[in-house]
């Protein structure tokens, strides 16, 4: 049974020059303990649809959907207070820029303990103890000392670990990771992905992984949604997607992987579209 179910989600932004549709009739569903990857180029609306679920879009956005339910409960009909009980507790999210995503004016300890105190009602001392445990769980060395550090005193990878620690603090049932490794060094990317996958298994949570990296998809996902210009191109389990991609766009994405390169030049998605058109 799926814990998040979205049908025909549309997100429009009001701009100075008129309305702009960022997400156009997307369906997303994810089951308990499943890893779903949403793939697409930047600007394909993959982050926007998840921000819409979280209720994190600016006021200029209009969100409509035929269905938007979490655990059978309609998210769109929830009051702000009800929704807040869900967001940050049962559904959490981490972002692309870990350093910018942490508040520069507070220690990382403050930022994780705040969640423990306010969302879980822990006392100050319990929150501190739990924060140390969580930091250990996400592999931050010397957690006691690091709790007193400010984000700018830590590396990007460590900041992302802090973000992950905050995200799993309430033992959520669904974690949305929006390009969690894009801003990090290549060597760190693998570590963070491995950490996410391990935590996903340990906690048995569902994971929605937003990425533009087919390599990441192959390594992690159970099921894949391919999105292009706000529309869903294809949805399949990961094996059949790589073995027999149905949509031309997916084929283009796969052809653009460096491993598939023939000759002295990397093919691009638009190359592929031109070929398709010429055929």
């Amino acid at each position: 049974m799926s814990i998040l179910n979205i049908r025909n989600l549309t997100v429009k932004f009001a701009t100075a020059t008129g309305s702009f549709t960022a997400v156009d009739g997307i369906d997303v569903h994810v089951s308990k303990g499943e890893v779903l990857a949403i793939v697409g180029e930047s600007g394909s609306g993959k982050s926007v649809s998840m921000l819409a679920v979280m209720g994190l879009l600016p006021d200029t956005a209009t969100v409509t959907a035929d269905e938007m339910t979490y655990d059978g409960r309609d998210i769109s009909k929830m009051s702000k207070a009800e929704r807040r009980k869900l967001i940050g507790r049962e559904i959490t999210m981490i972002f692309q820029e870990p350093v910018a995503s942490l508040n520069p004016s507070f220690t990382v300890g403050f930022q994780i303990e705040e969640v423990l105190r306010i969302n879980l009602g822990l006392s100050g001392r319990d929150a501190h103890r739990r924060a140390v445990e969580l930091f250990t769980a996400v592999g931050i060395p010397d957690p006691e000392a690091k709790l007193n550090a400010y984000p700018h005193q830590m590396s990007g990878g460590q900041c992302q670990r802090v973000m992950i620690a905050i995200a799993i603090a309430s033992e959520p049932r669904l974690l949305i990771a929006d390009e969690p490794t894009t801003a990090l060094d290549v060597t760190i990317q693998k570590q963070i992905l491995d950490l996410l996958m391990k935590l996903q298994e340990d906690y048995g949570m569902a994971l929605i992984l937003i990425t533009h990296d087919m390599g990441v998809v192959a390594e992690t996902a159970d099921r894949v949604v391919v999105q292009y210009k706000g529309r869903k191109m294809e949805e399949a389990d990961v094996l059949s997607l790589f073995q027999s991609p149905q949509s031309p766009y997916t084929r283009a994405l796969l052809a653009a992987l460096p491993e598939h390169a023939t000759g002295d030049r990397l093919p691009t998605v638009s190359d592929f579209f031109q070929e398709e058109a010429a055929r």
Binding site: L86, S101, L102, E114
Partner: peptide
């Protein structure tokens, strides 16, 4: 980071 604070509920 303000978006993060919101995302934290």
């Amino acid at each position: 980071y303000v978006r993060t604070a919101r995302a934290k509920g």
